[in-house]
Design a protein around this nucleic acid. Structure first.
Lengths: 108, 108
DNA sequence: TATAAATATAGTAAAATTCATATATACATT
DNA sequence: AATGTATATATGAATTTTACTATATTTATA
């Protein structure tokens, strides 16, 4: 069934499947930022930031608007933060599973 | 800032970044399934299914329970379906953006 | 105009992922 | 015990992604 839609979803998740791209999205949560502002927070070469932004742009996750010298980036659909929120909840569940497993092991 | 969590999120999304793995998760939504059941729905070699299941297992997204000859798989944390649901909403927004853009272009 | 600053892109080597095939392991049945 | 079935893993080739470096493009400023 609907293989094309599954491919589309996979591509979308692939766009999020990199720590620097997650970082960019989370930085943009506090408001639009210029590339250099992103860079100083991320502590990597500016070309790397541009590359990752290009990937996010290609998947329509962020948009860049030129303002003179600079380019201001913003997240296109704020629902993406709901997505990250759910991911965090899953992370927490996963973590508490791991912890209780460790506790169990120590009881023996 | 929380680099570890960003890495987790990235890894997690990476686990979802493949159409067959999306397919598996969606198939498991209707209830636990044996590998061969998954396979007949997916129309790929069984070794491919196993490989993809191994990836999902490694990221703690699914669990397999041995039942005699077979292994029954289930999704570990149903919250993952919340995630897919939010993703779908984002696609729909994106899609309707694209459509209205196309309409605009036709008006000119 | 020449130079600097900000951003983007091209090229490339290394690393990771995918897919196919072959092999291994565990359980069931005869 | 021997064979068949279900699942998992190993291996390797092809492809994709990443990270780095160099270069290009646009705008601002001396």
């Amino acid at each position: 069934m609907n293989l094309e839609l599954q491919q589309f979803k996979a591509d979308f998740f692939k766009a999020l499947a990199h720590p620097l791209r997650i970082r960019i999205i989370e930085l943009l949560r506090d408001g639009d930022k210029y590339v250099n502002e992103l860079q100083t927070h991320m502590e990597v070469e500016s070309s790397i930031v541009s590359q990752q932004l290009a990937i996010l742009r290609a998947k329509n996750i962020v948009v860049g608007v030129k303002e003179g010298n600079k380019v201001a980036y913003s997240v296109k659909d704020p629902k993406i933060y709901d997505l990250l929120e759910v991911a965090k909840e899953i992370f927490n569940n996963h973590l508490s599973d791991t912890i209780s497993l460790l506790n169990q092991m120590n009881e023996d």
